[in-house]
Computed example of a mutant assay.
Amino acid sequence: MIVLENNYVRLEPLSLENYTHLLEIAQEKDLIAYSPSDISSPDKLLDYVKLALGGVDHKTTLPFIIYDKRKAQYAGSTRFGLIHWKNKVLHIGWTWIGHAFQGTGLNTHMKFLMLQYAFEILEFEKVEFRIDERNQKSRKAVEKLGATLEGILRKDTLMNDGFRRSTCCYGILKNEWPDIKTTIFKGF
């Protein structure tokens, strides 16, 4: 069981035992408006968690529940996904945190822990992020982390409302991590 933490955040493995801490947050309006997932009811959140956990046995996902140590509250969920062990590439995403936790630096602290784990412990070669082209807030956040826009997959994902979104593909390479760590995450 992997737990990633610093003075601000703890990322614990998401499970059928702890996901209920997220029931209230998952009900927040427009929390995952740019995601093809649906967590809008307790049953849909449970399905979301079961899907995330389904990849754990195949070692293709590693989902986390996010605990904000400063506020002493659970804040949301994130995961490593599409883990490709041979190519040493994984995605960080499926991230959602409650509105009260947005803009507090929590996301930056958890992304630091995840990037550090991917590059320094797993020794992966690349971390990717996939974001709805319309989601300017998330795109700017990933760009602030030092990720490079590598391209846009046009109309590649069907959303719940029938809209076909285009997906921005961002990446950070292992050889870029030392500079990103010392400039973007200075003092972490």
Score class of each variant (00 low, 15 high):
K71Q: 13
A100S: 15
H91W: 14
Y67Q: 12
I152D: 00
A147Q: 02
V3D: 02
I39Q: 00
L14T: 02
L11F: 01
G55D: 05
L158M: 11
R10W: 00
D47C: 14
P42N: 07
C169D: 00
I131W: 06
Y48G: 01
P13M: 09
I83H: 02
T95L: 03
F80E: 01
T108Q: 15
L31P: 12
L113E: 05
T183R: 05
Q102T: 13
G55M: 12
T78P: 04
I152Y: 02
T167N: 05
V9W: 05
S77K: 00
R165G: 06
G187Q: 02
E120W: 00
K181C: 04
M159S: 01
E24I: 14
Q102D: 09
V142I: 15
F119R: 08
I2C: 06
T78M: 07
T167E: 08
M114H: 08
T148L: 13
F80I: 01
L113F: 05
G76D: 05
N107A: 14
F185D: 02
K50T: 11
M110G: 03
L115V: 07
Y117Q: 06
W177G: 04
E28A: 06
G146M: 06
I172H: 04
G81K: 13
R70S: 12
F185C: 09
R164V: 04
D47N: 15
A52R: 13
K137V: 15
T148H: 14
V142E: 02
M114G: 08
I172Y: 07
G54C: 06
K86P: 02
L16D: 03
M159K: 05
Q73H: 13
T104W: 14
M159F: 12
R164Y: 15
L23N: 09
E120A: 04
S35C: 11
N107S: 13
K186W: 03
G76Q: 03
E5P: 10
K155N: 14
W96E: 00
I66C: 04
I2Y: 10
N18M: 05
I180M: 07
A52M: 15
A141Q: 03
L113H: 05
W96A: 00
K69Q: 12
I131E: 00
E12C: 05
M159P: 01
T148Y: 04
N107W: 12
Y34V: 01
T61D: 13
E143Y: 11
D161A: 07
R134C: 02
N18V: 10
F163M: 11
Y170D: 00
R10E: 10
G103F: 13
I32R: 04
A147V: 01
T78E: 02
Q27A: 13
D161K: 10
T148D: 10
V3E: 09
D179R: 14
N135T: 02
L173P: 08
I121R: 13
T20W: 01
I32K: 09
L4T: 09
K144P: 04
E120T: 08
K59Q: 15
S40D: 03
E176N: 06
C168H: 04
I65C: 01
L153M: 13
D161L: 07
K44P: 00
E128A: 11
N7S: 15
L16S: 06
E150Q: 10
Y67M: 12
T61L: 06
S166H: 12
S35T: 12
E28P: 10
I180Q: 05
T157D: 03
E176Q: 15
T61S: 14
K29W: 02
K111Y: 03
S15W: 07
I172A: 10
E125W: 03
P36T: 06
T78K: 09
K69E: 03
